[in-house]
Design a protein around this nucleic acid. Structure first.
Length: 915
DNA sequence: TATCCGACAAGTA
DNA sequence: TACTTGTCGGATA
């Protein structure tokens, strides 16, 4: 169960009539215990309690539901119970259906409340559900609750207003939801009178909900009408207490979907929550999912986490502001300068979603400004940081609305926090009508129209500068000498995953600029637009991105263009696994990359180790592989760079729906039924087969054999299956190959007496690349490369540490897996030319490695190369091999991988510049 | 022809 | 459900 589901279950339980006997079990059930687990506790087999009538679940909780008036004594009994300690109960809980008390035995935190309210503390007990990021979730407990309530309301309304669910009306529905959220927030924060909105619905709409939409619509109309015009407009008396809000929020259609009785009660229920607690940074991304079909299932927990947002914003500019604040000390002049500077800083997120980056940036800036004001003794001073300097572009219109709302709420909360409720209220309404979150496609919109150039002492600028001025973004804007910081987490899509629209976006943006742009990830568009934007007005940019953009093919395609515009990578967080609070996290490994065209020589590379600690390294240059120094970009090559290395071949691609290959059992069956089959069956090896010692076979049939196989039903059937499989392909070449279903779609069947298999993808945890010999006439799948009858020293080089670090650095990766490439890794590998003696020595080392493996027959490669358990003799053989090879490079062993890379890059540069 | 890649995918612990 | 580790075929050059 995810937190939202748990919240719902706990709330349901709190509404049921209290039954002392059942309560402990219902409580455990609400936190996700399976019915079998509950049964075991009920029957007593796993109830470890020593207190009469209580229930104790080992490692979790000790619960006693008691008679009325005995809660304090009950809790005491649980606290003193030896079983509580012995079974390591994390919580004790006592209730009589009126009072509710609980304690966390590890932290000492307690909950004391009325029984009917205990659902508000579901976050307190979340570790019962094995949800480990408890702290973060508890902080956003309110947001989860509000989201789940709104979700119910939204679904109920759509169900009974099907026309509002259509594509055309969806924006109206979303706008309606945004208005509701604003009203809920306003009525709980004194912007409206206490509970004005909810109370008005309750009092003035019929309880059968027949006129709820009319009442709400009238309130919206009031909020869009200036007080002095209200009489003329015939605003109903009961709506006169609503302030004039405007800010675009209530202008436009005031139509409201029709309510059912249930919808009305949901609405009143959502309204009864305490919306003061809303976290605009998190809430936005959660609520966004309410309106988003695709994300409904995961209920919105798909957003950039606050720590990750700070990984972008801190190095981009917040760290610098904080440094300046510190340097300024108590110097009034310097503090003032800093404040002025901050007032002219724009933060721009061209993929802003529901605005978390902008909200966090705004809140952090207000925090710094407040410290300045305290030091200057100006604590009541109005903020000089304009909300309209936090700009965004967002494709989905509801997200854009929520982003705007989140920023308004953040501003209000900051004002309350730093200036007090009274001042915050005085200036809040009416909202600014400016629309500084632009709805649209960020790769199509001219960013200068959203964030016009500020120049230095240059005023703004004729319309001719805006190639496609957008009405909504045409804000008069003077921000002389201002800085712009571009940030965000744009969408990632690899070239073969992109939709037609995405491909069109990249084509329009890049076709005239970058050769081979079609191989780039969709996210590249944001980096390029950011770089081009920064040529016009001072800015720095940083995005969260798939780590692919700093690997393999992206390096020579994307980065030279950005560098040629005068940019460098100003900071970087190297690959780390994407994580947020979602039940199912997106499977992607990300980097954070900052680019800048300003002078800067203290660049930072951040590395995160497994326990989450971040290290920083300062350097003068960060290359596109995100390692310090080495200004080298490796291009892919179709021939080997070193004449001593043998050509490496890509495997054969079947595109057969797996009908041309099978396991040993199937092979025996086929041959048993018709012995003529045997001559068409070959060993078939992918990376996994070779590493784990699995045996697979494939059919290899040539045109001349067609007559024969027509008479072998088992084979004929498979061939037919391939045909129908291929016909279903959306790729034309595959479809065409349905004409030749007996053949692999791409044929690379090389003959050789001695084949070395190089896995195309394999675990990055091993100390060596695993190169594996195969028997003659093996067919390699396209998940493996092959060397055919190559001299033994090729094996020695492939198995070396120095080759491994080259591959890890230069080739692409699958997340952080090792991914081999002949064109990027093997053909580019810089090797000094070998003497006859060198070749003999290396070959001997290679033999040693193979012999060492043999000694452990039949252990698989996976077992032999497990970094924890690698046999000594094998390890020794590898070390010997490394030593001999490295002596050829520099006459001794390298000290470390940095030294290896340094030598390799030097040699690479030398060897490639010769031709 | 030839090959790089996957807001992954499929398996195990 | 957390962790490990590499398929397969589309899209592109």
């Amino acid at each position: 169960m995810n937190p939202v589901e748990i919240e719902e279950a706990v709330s349901d339980l709190a509404q049921q009539p209290f039954e002392a006997e059942e309560f402990p079990f219902s409580f455990l059930e609400a936190f996700g215990n399976k019915s079998t687990t509950i049964k075991k506790i009920k029957s007593g087999t796993s109830n470890k309690t020593d207190v009469e009538g209580a229930v104790l679940q080992r490692n979790n909780i000790h619960i006693l539901a008691s008679k009325e008036g005995k809660v304090i004594q009950s809790l005491e009994a649980l606290r003193n119970s030896p079983a509580t300690k012995k079974n390591k109960a994390e919580f004790i809980l006592a209730t009589d259906g009126k009072d509710f008390q609980a304690e966390n035995m590890l932290t000492g935190e307690t909950v004391v409340c009325d029984y009917k309210d205990f659902h508000n503390y579901f976050g307190f007990f979340l570790s019962l559900a094995n949800i480990t990021t408890v702290k973060q979730i508890r902080e956003s407990a309110f947001d989860i609750k509000a989201t789940s309530r709104l979700n119910k309301l939204y679904i109920e309304l759509l169900q009974h207003n099907p026309e509002w669910a259509t594509m055309e009306r969806r924006p109206d529905m979303n706008h309606f939801l945004a208005r509701l959220i604003f009203c809920f927030f306003a009525e709980d924060t004194d912007i409206f009178q206490d509970n004005l909105f909810t109370n008005t619905v309750q009092k003035f709409s019929a309880s059968d909900a027949s006129d709820t939409h009319i009442v709400i619509s009238e309130m919206f109309r009031a909020m869009d009408t200036k007080k002095r015009n209200r009489e003329n407009e015939n605003i109903k008396v009961w709506a006169k207490d609503f302030p004039y809000v405007n800010g675009e929020l209530f202008s436009g259609s005031i139509e409201v979907p029709k309510f059912t009785k249930i919808a009305r009660s949901y609405l009143l229920h959502v309204g009864s929550l305490d919306w003061k607690q809303i976290n605009p940074d998190i809430f936005g991304s959660m609520i966004q999912a309410v309106a988003d079909e695709d994300e409904r299932g995961s209920l919105g927990m798909h957003y950039t986490s606050v720590p990750n947002i700070l990984k972008v914003l801190n190095p981009l500019f917040l760290d610098d502001l904080r440094d300046q604040l510190e340097t300024a000390g108590d110097n009034n002049r310097k503090l003032l300068n800093l404040r002025n500077r901050m007032a002219h800083i724009r933060v721009f997120d061209p993929a802003c979603g529901s605005g978390n980056f902008l909200v966090i940036a705004y809140k952090e800036m207000r925090k710094i400004e407040n410290e300045i004001n305290i030091k200057r003794g100006e604590t009541n001073k109005a903020s000089e940081i304009p909300l309209t300097n936090y700009r965004g572009i967002e494709l989905k219109d509801f997200s854009a609305e929520v982003a705007r709302l989140a920023l308004i709420i953040a501003e209000y909360q900051c004002d309350v926090l730093y200036r007090g409720q009274r001042l915050a209220l005085a200036e809040f309404l009416p909202l600014d009508a400016e629309n500084w979150i632009t709805k649209g496609n960020a790769l199509k919109i001219d960013w200068l129209s959203v964030c016009p150039p500020t120049g230095i002492g240059v005023k703004l600028l004729g319309d001719d500068l805006f190639s496609t001025p957008l009405k909504q973004a045409e804000i008069d804007f003077e921000n002389e000498g201002g800085e712009t910081y571009i940030c965000g987490n744009p969408p990632y899509k690899g070239s073969s995953e992109q939709t037609i629209e995405m491909k069109r976006d990249l084509r329009d943006l890049l076709s005239s600029k970058i050769k081979n742009y079609k191989s780039l990830d969709y996210v590249s568009g944001w980096f390029i637009k950011a770089a081009e934007y920064g040529l016009i007005t001072p800015s720095k940019s940083a995005f969260v991105s798939t780590n692919s953009i700093n690997q393999g093919l992206h390096i020579p395609i994307l980065w030279p263009y950005i560098f040629n515009l005068g940019y460098h990578i100003s900071f970087a967080h190297v690959s780390f696994k994407w994580k947020n609070l979602a039940a199912h996290n997106a499977g992607v490994t990300v980097v954070i990359v900052g680019i800048s065209n300003a002078k800067d020589d203290r660049l930072k590379i951040y590395t995160q180790n497994d326990d989450g600690n971040v290290q920083e390294k300062i350097t003068e240059y960060i290359n596109p592989y995100l390692i310090p120094d080495f200004k080298v970009i490796v291009q892919k090559k179709s021939k080997v760079l070193s004449s001593d290395l043998t050509e490496m071949h890509y495997g054969s691609k079947a595109a057969d729906g797996k009908f041309l290959n099978f396991d040993s059992q199937e092979k025996r069956k086929i041959i048993k039924l018709d012995s003529r089959s045997a001559k068409f069956i070959y060993p078939y090896l992918s990376a996994e087969d070779a590493i784990k010692g699995k045996k697979r076979y494939c059919l290899w049939i040539e045109e001349k054999d067609l007559k024969t196989i027509d008479n072998i039903p088992l084979i004929k059937k498979r061939v037919d299956q391939v045909k129908s499989y291929r016909l279903k392909s959306k790729k034309k070449t595959t479809k065409d190959l349905a004409l030749y279903p007996y053949k692999f779609s791409e044929v690379r069947f090389y003959k050789g007496k001695r084949i070395f298999i190089v896995p195309s993808v394999s675990s990055e945890k091993r100390d060596y690349l695993t190169v594996i010999p195969a028997i003659e006439n093996s067919v390699l799948t396209n998940a493996a490369f092959g060397l055919y009858d190559a001299p033994m020293w090729n094996f020695s080089i492939l198995s070396s540490q120095i080759h491994l670090i080259w591959i890890k650095t230069i080739c692409g990766q699958l997340e952080t897996r090792l991914r081999y490439s002949n064109t990027l890794g093997w053909n580019t590998f810089p090797l000094p030319s070998l003497t006859q003696k060198n070749k003999e020595d290396l070959s001997a080392c290679a033999e040693e490695i193979l012999i060492a493996r043999e000694r452990h027959f039949p252990a698989t490669i996976a077992v032999l190369y497990d970094p924890e358990k690698m046999p000594k003799d094998l390890k020794l053989a590898h070390e010997r091999n490394d030593e001999v090879l490295e002596r050829i490079y520099i006459g001794r062993k390298f000290k470390n991988d940095t030294e290896r890379l340094e030598k390799l890059f030097e040699l690479y540069t030398k060897m490639t510049s010769k031709n």
